[in-house]
Amino acid sequence: MIPLSGDIPDSKGAICGKIDSNPVVRGTSTLKRGFAHMLKNGVVMDVTNVEQAQIAEEAGAVSVMVLDKLPSDVRKAGGVARTASIRIIEEIMDNVTIPVMAKCRIGHMYEANVLDETNVDMIDESEVLTPADEYHHIWKWDFTTPFVNGARSLGEALRRVEEGAAMIRTKGEPGTGNVAEAIYHIKKVNEELRTIKSMYDSDDKQELVKMAREFKVSYDLVEETAKIGRLPVVNFAAGGIATPADAAYLMSLGCDGIFVGSGIFKAEDAQERARAVVLATTFWEEPDKVKEAQKMIDERQSLLGLDVKNLDLKMQERGSTV
């Protein structure tokens, strides 16, 4: 089981309060990580307006992620990509019943504050937007709202967890419609997990200490992760997912769920495709159901896609080394 504890002492995000006269506590690890647990086996869809958010909800999305532009448009537009308009985020929050997430720039403490005040259900500190701080991510323990972060290796994932991320998404290359990078990174994380698990199982503390130094995280976190043999928080796949078969494949690699960015609303058959990706994610273990889902979409209407080798901008590299 994924542990729900992991609070650091005196985390500012955990607040004691009252509802009427009854004492309550908010923003604990149990509540933040627990929220991510409720998303498991679901699909989170990128949206830019109310209409798309409603299509996503009707199709069975477990949550929506609000952006100003879909990742493939961010890529085309160039310039600086920032958090979405608050007015649009609020409009979406008022019109769907499922949780609403929004992205802020890496390291941009005050964009995060604004989203926290807006009351979004989860904040994505995302490499799809232009990083605001090349050297630091946000210290997420200071927030009551949970965070999700991207990672393309185990070390990167654990650094984010140590900063207070309640959920991880293994990165792909956003806005490409090319699932290759997402597959590469989840396989890499799985391989690294197997390595430290076997160190733990053979009680080789010296090697685990070495890994902690390499990952640049505390020994305790490496040991805890090695013991359970998986990431200590919920882990979704993201980046370049365009078809039901893409989603099902990533589920089979051990992901807890799926983020779809441009893959749905940049395709010409968004409504059908949204539903099909949810079906394939739910029933990934049943090949006939995945086929049925794949049949709902028309390949001629898929996002054309980009070869990652030819890209000038690799979003996945943002914030990876710190």
Binding site: G17, I19, N22, P23, V24, V25, R26, G27, T28, T30, L31, G34, F35, M93, T97, P99, D116, N119, V120, D121, M122, T144, T145, P146
Partner: peptide, 15 residues
Amino acid sequence: ERNSFGRQKDSFEAK
């Protein structure tokens, strides 16, 4: 009544 206590930030633990 769904989301009766508010959004995620209002989620809480209580006896």
